[in-house]
């Protein structure tokens, strides 16, 4: 397995966080088990189109996460009058969640578009 392929499936490791949900009272951690789906990229045949859409999605996720982090921190500090550390924690958490959400939606969208395009082609 190449490093690139390993990285593409790496968000699947987030599913391990689901274990915290099993052994503690923080049940929202169980949602992380959904990330196990990302391991599929270790088994699909990779080509330049797949690489491009994963790279695009990850880059979108990264920048959206950064933008959300900055905006949420400033907003929480000035509008909600939170302390600077509470605002930062809020920004970091929200930024991380948005990054993962954008990545997931974007890869799902590209995957759907790819499959839909092929189905259309098969129709005479």
């Amino acid at each position: 397995m190449t490093v690139k392929k390993f990285l593409y499936g790496a968000p699947g490791f987030l599913s391990l966080l689901g274990i915290i949900g099993l052994v503690s009272d923080e049940k929202f951690f169980l949602c992380f088990f959904a990330s196990v789906l990302d391991f599929e990229y270790w088994f699909v045949k990779s080509d330049e189109m797949l690489e491009e859409y994963i790279n695009k999605s990850a880059a979108r996720g990264f920048f959206c996460g950064m933008a959300t982090m900055g905006c949420a921190t400033v907003f929480d500090f000035f509008v909600n009058n939170s302390s600077e550390m509470d605002a930062l924690i809020m920004g970091l958490t929200l930024g991380w969640a948005v990054a993962l959400l954008v990545y997931s939606i974007s890869t799902a969208y590209f995957g759907f578009k790819e499959r839909w395009g092929m189905e259309k082609e098969e129709t005479p």
Partner: peptide, 17 residues
């Protein structure tokens, strides 16, 4: 930029665990 951002995003996801 896309390569660097992808690497950073994956590092973020892996390191959190």
């Amino acid at each position: 930029l896309q390569k660097a951002a992808t690497f950073a995003f994956m590092a973020e996801m892996i390191s959190l665990v």
